[in-house]
C-alpha cells in the first residue's frame, strides 16, 4: 500500500489497484465528506448533549424510511402515501415473534424481512393496475385499514396500548451507552440504505426507472419491461421500510399501531422526502435532520404554539424550495454529465 500527493491529487495504491482523489476542495468526493460529518454527529452528541441522542436516532430512522420511499416513487412513477404500512408489518412481525415465541432480534429481523417481502409482493400489482390519484388513495388506505385491524383484533395487537416486552436490541447495562450504540446502528442502517439506493440510481436500472417515471407507455415501447421494474421497485423498498419497523420495535421495546400507522407519521415521512429534496437520496438525510431538529426547537421555544408554527414553516419551505433543501446545493454545484433523475409527480 502506498500513499502520495501528486499533481494536486491524493493517490492511493493498493497492489495493482490505484485510487485517486483531487485535493482541491471543488473536486472533493462529496460523499466522503458527507458520510464523515454524519459519523461525527452521534459522537459529538454523545459527548456534548447525550440527551439529544434519541433525536438523532429519530432523524436517522426517518431518513432511512424516506430513502427507499424515494426509490419506490421513482421506480413506480407514483407517490406512495402509505409507507407506514410496511413499518407496521415489520414492527408487528418482530414484536409478535419476540413476545410470543421469544425469538432474539436477529431472528425476528429475518421474519420482518419475510413479512415485508410477502406484503410487498402482494401489494406490488397495485403499481401496475392503479395510477395517479387512485394509487395514492389506495396506498393511503392500507395503513388506516391496518390500524383498524389492530383495534379489532385487540387480543393479538393490543390496540391502543400496543405490544410491550419486546427484546431490546442492545443492552450493555448503561442507558446512555445503549442509546449511543442504537444511534450508531440507526446511522449504519441509514448509510447502508443510502449506499444501496445510490448504487441503484447510478446504474442502468435507474435509466429504466426514469423512463417509467416520465412516460410508462413510451418506456415499454422502447423495450423496458415496465411491470418487472415496477414490481422490483415496489417490493424491495417495502422490505427496506419493514426493516425500519423491526428497528423501532426492538429499539423502544414496545410497538403500537397508533404510533406509526396514523396519517401524522406518514406526513412526517413525506415532509422529510419533500423538504429534503424531492426524493433525492442525499436530500432525505438533510430533510430528516431538519424536520426533527426544527420540531424539537419549536416545541422547546414556542411550546404548544409550535403545532401551528411548524406546519406553516414547512408549507413556506415547500412553496419556496421546489427542489427542497438539497436543491440549493445541487444548483450551485450542478456539473453532472449524465443527468440525475427527476421526479415529476
Amino acid at each position: 500500500m502506498e500513499l502520495e500527493i501528486k499533481r494536486e491529487k491524493l493517490v492511493l495504491r493498493v497492489g495493482t489497484q490505484k485510487y485517486e482523489w483531487h485535493i482541491e476542495p471543488r473536486y472533493w468526493r462529496n460523499p466522503f465528506i458527507y458520510v464523515g460529518i454524519l459519523i461525527l454527529v452521534p459522537i459529538a452528541v454523545y459527548f456534548l448533549y447525550p440527551q439529544w441522542l434519541p433525536t438523532v436516532i429519530d432523524a436517522n430512522l426517518l431518513a432511512a424510511i424516506a430513502i427507499p420511499l424515494g426509490w419506490m416513487t421513482i421506480g413506480t412513477g407514483r407517490m406512495n402515501f402509505g409507507p407506514q404500512f410496511y413499518i407496521g408489518v415489520g414492527g408487528f412481525t418482530a414484536a409478535l415473534c419476540s413476545i410470543n415465541l421469544g425469538w432474539p432480534p436477529f431472528v425476528t429481523l429475518l421474519m420482518a424481512i419475510l413479512a415485508g417481502l410477502i406484503f410487498g409482493l402482494l401489494m406490488s400489482p397495485l403499481s401496475i393496475i392503479a395510477g395517479g390519484l387512485y394509487y395514492t388513495l389506495l396506498t393511503l388506505l392500507f395503513p388506516l385499514v391496518f390500524l383498524e385491524i389492530t383495534f379489532i383484533y385487540t387480543d393479538l395487537f393490543k390496540g391502543d396500548t400496543g405490544l410491550f416486552g419486546i427484546a431490546q436490541m442492545v443492552n450493555v447495562g448503561h442507558f446512555t451507552v445503549n442509546q449511543f450504540l442504537i444511534c450508531l446502528m440507526s446511522l449504519f442502517m441509514m448509510l447502508l440504505y443510502m449506499f444501496i439506493v445510490d448504487k441503484i440510481m447510478r446504474s442502468k436500472f435507474a435509466a429504466s426507472m426514469a423512463a417509467i417515471n416520465d412516460d410508462e407507455e413510451v418506456a415499454e415501447a422502447m423495450g423496458v419491461n415496465v411491470k418487472k421494474i415496477k414490481i422490483i421497485s415496489f417490493t424491495i423498498p417495502a422490505v427496506m421500510i419493514a426493516v425500519i419497523g423491526w428497528f423501532y420495535a426492538h429499539y423502544y421495546g414496545t410497538f403500537s399501531g397508533v404510533t406509526y400507522l396514523p396519517l401524522a407519521f406518514m406526513v412526517k415521512v413525506l415532509l422529510v422526502s419533500m423538504i429534503g429534496g424531492r426524493v433525492q437520496i442525499y436530500g432525505n438525510v438533510i430533510g430528516g435532520y431538519f424536520i426533527v431538529i426544527l420540531e424539537l426547537f419549536l416545541s422547546s421555544v414556542l411550546g404548544e404554539y409550535s403545532q401551528v408554527v411548524f406546519p406553516i414553516i414547512l408549507l413556506i419551505l415547500l412553496l419556496t424550495l421546489p427542489e427542497g433543501l438539497f436543491g440549493l446545493y445541487r444548483k450551485r454545484r450542478y456539473r453532472e454529465y449524465l443527468p440525475t433523475l427527476h421526479v415529476r409527480r
Partner: peptide, 9 residues
Amino acid sequence: FPELTALMS
C-alpha cells in the same frame, strides 16, 4: 421523456 435529457432518452 420530459424530465430526461436528449442523451438519456
